[in-house]
Amino acid sequence: MQAQITPTMVEPVIPAARKAGPSRLRRYLKNTVLGLTFLITLSFIANWLWTMSGSNQWELKIDEGGTQVYTLKAPGATMLKIRAVMQTKEFTLSNHLAPLLDTSIQEDCAKWVPSCLSYKILQQWDPKTQSNVTMWTLGMPGPFSPREILLQGQLTQDPTTKVLTLENIAVPNKIAPNDCCVRLSHVHNVWRYTPIGDGNIKVEFVNDMDMSGAFPKFLLNLGAPGEIHKMLTIDNPKLLRQEKYRNARLAFIDEGLAK
Rank of each mutant, 00 (worst) to 15 (best):
V69P: 10
M86L: 12
N95R: 08
A98K: 01
M86P: 00
P75Y: 13
A84T: 07
K81L: 09
D102S: 06
N95C: 08
T88D: 05
M86C: 07
D102P: 00
H96E: 10
G76R: 12
L97N: 07
N95M: 01
T71P: 02
A74Y: 11
H96K: 07
Y70K: 14
Q68F: 00
A98T: 02
G76A: 14
L97M: 10
S94V: 03
T92A: 03
P99T: 07
G66R: 14
T67A: 15
A98F: 00
Q87N: 13
D102K: 04
T78E: 11
F91H: 06
L100W: 12
S94T: 04
A74G: 09
I82W: 02
T88M: 09
G76L: 13
A98L: 04
L72I: 08
A98P: 00
E90L: 07
I82M: 04
A77V: 12
T67F: 09
T78G: 11
R83M: 12
R83D: 07
M79R: 14
S94E: 05
R83G: 05
T88W: 00
L80I: 08
E90T: 13
L97H: 03
T78V: 13
L101C: 07
D102Y: 04
P99H: 05
L72M: 14
L101W: 01
T78R: 15
Q68N: 09
L93P: 00
T92F: 01
K81M: 11
N95L: 07
D102A: 07
L101H: 03
T88E: 09
L100C: 10
L101M: 10
R83Q: 14
I82S: 08
G76T: 11
L72N: 15
L97I: 08
S94C: 05
V69L: 12
Q87F: 01
D102R: 00
F91E: 04
L100I: 09
M86H: 11
T88N: 03
H96F: 06
F91C: 08
Q68D: 12
D102G: 03
H96C: 09
T71C: 12
T71A: 05
T67C: 15
L93Y: 00
A84N: 06
S94P: 03
T67W: 10
R83V: 05
T67L: 13
A84L: 04
L101F: 01
T88L: 02
A77E: 14
I82R: 08
Y70G: 09
E90I: 05
E90Y: 03
N95T: 08
P99E: 09
V85K: 14
A84H: 05
N95W: 04
K73P: 06
L93H: 02
E90H: 07
N95H: 06
M79V: 06
I82V: 14
